[in-house]
C-alpha cells in the first residue's frame, strides 16, 4: 500500500501525492494573486485624496496582537500535523481546534478594526489608498474566513473517520493553506502596517 516507507501517511498513495503537488501549484498562483494586490497598494498608498493616511488610522498595538494571533495559529497548526504524523487523533483535533480559535480571534480583531475605520470616515470609497487597503486586507480576511469554514468541516470528518490516508491528505493540505495565510500576513504586517506607520 505505502509507496514510500519513510514518508508520512498523507503521501501514501499516488492520488495523495498528486493532490498535494496540485495544492502547491495553487499556492503559487495565490502568491501571484496577492502580489497584484500588493503592487496596487504600493502604487496607490500615497493617494489619500484628503482622507486619512495609514499613519492616522493604524494602531500599532492592535496590529501586533493580530500578528501574534496568526503567528501562533500557524505554529499550533504545525503541531497538529506533528500529532497526525504520530497517529494521535485526539492531539490532532485538539491542536486544530486551538488553531481555529486563534483564527477566529484574528478575524474578530480584523472585523473590529474595519468597523472602527468606517466609523472614522475611512471607507473603501474614501480614497485610492483605502480602496487598495480594503481590497488587500479583505482578500486576506476572506481567505482566513474560508479557512475556518474548511477547518470546521474537516474536523467533523476527522471525528467521524479518524486518521486515514484520505483525511491525512486533506488535513495536510489545509495546513499548507493556513501557513500560507500567515506568510501573506507577514508581508501585510511589514509593508502595509509598519511602512504605513513610519
Amino acid at each position: 500500500m505505502a509507496s514510500g516507507t519513510s514518508l508520512p501517511l498523507e503521501y501514501s498513495t499516488k492520488q495523495n501525492e498528486m493532490n498535494i503537488l496540485g495544492f502547491w501549484i495553487f499556492l503559487g498562483a495565490e502568491i501571484v494573486l496577492f502580489s497584484t494586490l500588493f503592487a496596487g497598494y504600493a502604487v496607490l498608498e500615497h493617494n489619500t485624496a484628503g482622507g486619512p493616511a495609514g499613519s492616522d488610522i493604524f494602531i500599532m498595538k492592535d496590529v501586533m496582537i493580530q500578528t501574534f494571533l496568526l503567528l501562533t495559529s500557524s505554529f499550533t497548526c504545525s503541531l497538529a500535523i506533528h500529532q497526525m504524523r504520530n497517529n494521535n487523533l485526539k492531539g490532532l483535533i485538539t491542536w486544530l481546534l486551538i488553531t481555529m480559535a486563534l483564527g477566529l480571534g484574528f478575524l474578530y480583531m480584523e472585523i473590529n478594526e474595519f468597523i472602527h475605520y468606517v466609523h472614522e470616515g475611512a471607507t473603501m470609497q474614501t480614497s485610492a489608498f483605502l480602496s487598495a487597503f480594503f481590497t488587500l486586507l479583505g482578500t486576506h480576511g476572506a481567505h482566513v474566513t474560508l479557512g475556518i469554514g474548511w477547518l470546521t468541516l474537516l474536523i467533523i470528518q476527522l471525528v467521524k473517520r479518524g486518521i486515514t490516508p484520505v483525511t491525512a491528505r486533506k488535513t495536510f493540505i489545509i495546513s499548507l493553506y493556513w501557513h500560507f495565510l500567515d506568510v501573506v500576513w507577514i508581508f501585510i504586517f511589514t509593508f502595509v502596517y509598519l511602512k504605513g506607520l513610519m
Partner: peptide, 29 residues
C-alpha cells in the same frame, strides 16, 4: 519548517514552483 516544502517526491518541483511564483510576484510588485 512548517510547510515542509522540500519534503516528499515532489519536493524539488514544489521548490521550483514556489521560487518561480515568488519571482513573478517580485516582478509584478
Amino acid at each position: 519548517m512548517f510547510m515542509h516544502m522540500n519534503e516528499g517526491k515532489s519536493g524539488m518541483i514544489n521548490t521550483i514552483n514556489i521560487v518561480y511564483s515568488v519571482f513573478i510576484a517580485a516582478v509584478i510588485v
